[in-house]
């Protein structure tokens, strides 16, 4: 596998982001979002390049990548299906939603389908309690009011 590089357009976006703050390091979270939106995860090699861009040490990038649940150091599915399982979603049947997706895709949370198309993640409260169950694919706008009996439609939407 060839080594991944941060693309010129993402470099440009990071440089723009840095201008918002008195210290370049403050752009780190946004930089990681830009990278993940493009390549799906943030491997160690890329982390070194980010560190160089922001003038910090690679470990200072890695501790952020591993602290925040939204970043992935290793590849996830092209559609990473994140199901909220916290209280409001649990009351609305989140467990049945997770199980339904598991059965349809043949994977468990934390796993990826063989073709790399999907992965499932259980997440903690997405702030959409009034429209539970809430599902988010990658960092796209929410899919709300998900019902266990309508999961075929859901997976069709995700494509």
């Amino acid at each position: 596998m060839s080594a991944l590089e941060i693309s010129p357009s993402v470099r440009e976006a990071i440089a723009e982001e840095v201008k918002k703050y008195p210290e370049p390091r403050s752009a780190l979270l946004m930089a990681l979002h830009f990278i993940q939106a493009e390549i799906g995860h943030v491997p160690v090699g890329i982390q070194r390049q980010v560190a160089e861009l922001l003038g910090i040490r690679p470990i200072e990038v890695r501790e952020v990548v591993t602290f925040y649940p939204m970043y992935h150091e290793h590849p996830v599915g092209r559609a990473n299906i994140r199901v909220c399982v916290n209280i409001a979603c649990a009351l609305a049947g989140a467990r049945e939603v997770v199980e339904g997706i598991e059965a349809r895709l043949g994977i468990r949370p934390g796993e990826r389908t063989a073709d790399g198309a999907y992965s499932i993640e259980e997440v903690q409260c997405l702030g959409s309690c009034g429209t539970a169950v809430c599902v988010q694919v990658n960092n796209d706008p929410y899919i709300e009011n998900v019902r266990p009996e309508r999961l075929d439609d859901l997976l069709q939407t995700i494509g």
Binding site: K20, Y21, S26, L29, M30, L32, H33, V64, F67, Y68, P69, M70, Y71, V123, Q124, C125
Partner: peptide
Amino acid sequence: VYAMRGAGAY
């Protein structure tokens, strides 16, 4: 005013 994003940590 600037908008910035977190990354999933309560």
